[in-house]
Amino acid sequence: MSVRSFRTYYIIISTLLFSTVLFPIFTFGNKAYPLILGLPYSFFWIILWIVITFIAVLILYFIDPDKEEV
C-alpha cells in the first residue's frame, strides 16, 4: 500500500470511529437502559467505541508502510 492510500484509509476510518460519539450516530447509544457491565448503555457505548478505536489504530499501525520512518 502506498503512503498516500494509507493516509486516505486512516482518515476515513478514524473519522467514522469518531462519529460514533457524535450525533446523529450517537442516537443509537443514547439510552439509559440496559445496564451493561454495571454501566448505563450510553456510558458503555462510548467506552466500547474507544476500545474499538484503540484496536483499529493498532491494526492500522501494523499495515502503515511508513512506520519505520525516523
Partner: peptide
Amino acid sequence: FYILAYLAFSLLPWYI
C-alpha cells in the same frame, strides 16, 4: 461523557 469522548479521540489527527 463528552470529556471521555473528546480525550479518547483528540489525538487521532496527530498520526498524520
